[in-house]
Design a protein around this nucleic acid. Structure first.
Lengths: 162, 162
DNA sequence: TACTAGTGAGTTGTGCGCAATTGAATTGTG
DNA sequence: CACAATTCAATTGCGCACAACTCACTAGTA
């Protein structure tokens, strides 16, 4: 019932329409996650850990705060994640001598060496998606704009409560 | 270092490029999650619970297996989720008399009544995204194609191991 | 009829994500 | 200088996602 595949504007259709968009996003993220899980198996990394290593490979040394800004994650997620990377021998955590509140993360030799193995990951993933550069750029643009608007919407929502 | 924002094809750039695409997806999903968390606060639902209720409102009665197919989730995720919805008084779980292995999920009166409150959710979310129908359709199409390719890629990857 | 697949939910364990809180270190201000 | 406010990381608690496993039930077969 209420099978209107085109542009309807009643409440039921809106439910269905929105369901499609956010659900599609949700599914794509999880499908991507499965692909990366497979591609990262040899490296012994999960996808969020891989993102953290990417950031560290680029920046050499990062505070937990800065890393959290780059990955859009808070210490509640990063602290245990970084502890696992430290246990795996990939990173070192040390309190900053300039500001004892801050914890600086840097790669170990093993962590830096892992970058060589990681270079084949994006090519493998890109090949499996079958998307060309144009499609990826287009998708990336849409997602970036969407995230921007959602962030300001969330910010505005929070502001409304003040 | 390795700051090449255009189309490079060396390993470092690919790392960066792929980082952008999957990371953008990841971020958009989480930004969406934050928006829904806010919009669903009054209903007392999380986003995955909301998806489950959407499916149940559409289909009236579903086995856990069928619901899992619709939401692309397995019993490991659905069992505790449905137990929470049952505790909240929104759904009923009962074993099928035809096949005692199967568990049928249906909405209670309260669960069905919640649909009325839920009708305002998609409009609110759509308004906050600021995306028009064209953009949403475009994004949905890209995501659907991406998920399709990723799924077959994952399937092929699994097949390769056989 | 017994015996073996196979199927459907549930459970356990691990990791991510987020809200809320805690505690130590720093900064700002009187 | 002393005291309040802020900042940063860590911790706790909850829910989702997924892999691996268990167990009851069903179906297929000798």
């Amino acid at each position: 019932m209420t099978e209107t595949p085109t542009t309807g504007t009643n409440a039921g259709d809106l439910l269905r329409l929105e369901h499609q968009v956010c659900f599609a996003l949700h599914n794509a993220t999880r499908a991507f996650g499965a692909l990366y899980r497979d591609a990262l198996k040899d490296l012994g990394l999960t996808y969020p850990q891989y993102l953290a290593m990417l950031a560290l490979w680029e920046h050499d040394e990062l505070s937990v705060k800065r890393l959290g800004e780059l990955l859009r994650l808070d210490s509640g997620t990063l602290s245990p994640l970084l502890k696992r990377l430290e246990t795996a021998g990939l990173v070192i955590r040390e309190r900053s001598p300039l500001d004892e509140r801050s914890v600086l993360i840097s790669t170990t030799a093993a962590g830096a060496a892992l970058r060589e193995q990681a270079t084949r990951v994006p090519a493998e993933v890109a090949a499996r998606t079958g998307f060309d550069l144009d499609e990826m750029r287009q998708l990336r643009g849409l997602l970036a704009r969407l995230t921007d608007r959602l962030d300001t919407a969330n910010g505005a929502g929070a502001a409304q409560e003040c």
